[in-house]
Design a protein around this nucleic acid. Sequence first.
DNA 1: GAAGTGACAAGGT
DNA 2: CACCTTGCCACTT
Length: 98
Amino acid sequence: MDYKIIYELVRQIPRGRVATYGQIARLARWGRRARHVGWAMHACPDDVPWHRVINSKGEISRRASSDHHELQRLLLEAEGVRFDHRSRVDLERFSWER
DNA sequence: GAAGTGACAAGGT
DNA sequence: CACCTTGCCACTT
């Protein structure tokens, strides 16, 4: 498979915006392989803003180690993305529109 | 090669 | 809004 497409797209997410896995999957014409976008992120090259990719609920998905999702939130907040009291992003305002 | 797993999504309740 | 169920498919046992 070619995860390059995914990385290209993620790289295009502007600062202060976020995208969902499904959104990336659709843009990459991966159909319903949203799940694998996450897998692609697992190999995330350093120049990919992986923190701007979250799940469809606006929540930060966590991997095995818990410290990383803290970092992800900090990075996003540093870019101006606001979280509500439930640690969720208002996708209406912050989702990346192509 | 079968079964289990996962940084998910959409639709129903 | 929250929770549950189902579909998905590459990757790992």
